[in-house]
Design a binder for these strands. Sequence first.
DNA 1: TAAACGTGGTT
DNA 2: TAACCAAGTTT
Length: 350
Amino acid sequence: MSYPYIKEFQNSLVEWFQREKRDLPWRKTKDPYKIWVSEVMLQQTRVDTVIPYYENFLEKFPTVEALATAEEEFLLKQWEGLGYYSRVRNLQAGVREVVENYHSIVPNNRASISTLKGVGPYTAGAVLSIAYGVPEHAVDGNVMRVLSRVLLIEDDIALPKTKKVFEKAVMDLMDIKHPSDFNQGLMELGALVCTPTSPKCLLCPVRDYCGAFAEGQTSNLPVKTKKTKVKKLAYDVFIVENDKGQLLMEKRPESGLLANMWEFPMVLENEHYSALAEFSQQYSVEVLGQEALLTLKHVFSHIVWNLSSYYVQGESKSGIWLSLEEIEQLPLAVPMQKILQQYKISRKKL
DNA sequence: TAAACGTGGTT
DNA sequence: TAACCAAGTTT
């Protein structure tokens, strides 16, 4: 490419990263497996959120063998609250491929590592460059924001095809002597300095090589189109307790939203019938009493749930009835955790 | 390609 | 408050 200050840009970025980088748990290791775990957890997820999950996860699953042999329910429990739960099932599937096909050694080239479940273009480049020092691109949202400004790239970063533009740009700019620090430097710069709003250009190590700074365009880049609005759904949720103090539980389907997570029985609200009647019929539960517990709104990335939860005393021969202690071993999505918490509080008052 | 897929923090 | 954002991948 014609970018004239490549060497200066590389040196300024790498030296800044080495000087200013945050002290993060996954920066204390070069174990490809641990880097892999961190990269999967960090997908669409904040650093502060990830840290405790990362520490716990590697305590429970310190090696690829440990993760490969883990029970899925226990695995999901460790991911509980992190979101995007298919990540952890894909991670285990990928790790099992490494154990079976690669003698438990994470592949060190893009072609091989990219075949692993859950390893996309970004994660492949991140593990290769950070763990193995391979000069490969690792383009995330930070990198697109930083380079759209530095190079004045106006392509819409919401479009999938735009990523190729940035992958080429990264390879053109790559410091082949320091692939790890270069890639992490771009991301760290995006996280700490070249932020979406109010970038700290006066603190930027590559300000002198930034097109957007020179032309006063930082607030107009990157170009990103908006998303569509979310779908709203209203459910009635029933905490059903039998005379043994057990609660009726359900496991969600193995695919789709919150796959394989556990929840309390829910019925979609509808003007045409009573949700309670519908529930007692669907679950064959004889309802003896009902008491409102908690209403809450839970916002997913593409759906909003409006939940009304009720405490119900009832009996049924069918269904899965579990004690509180058993339920607390199960992976529950955040809205169910909140409802369970409210149930425990109400129960204590009796 | 567009949509699905979580959650919590920030503006 | 609604919208946007955060180290993306899969279908």
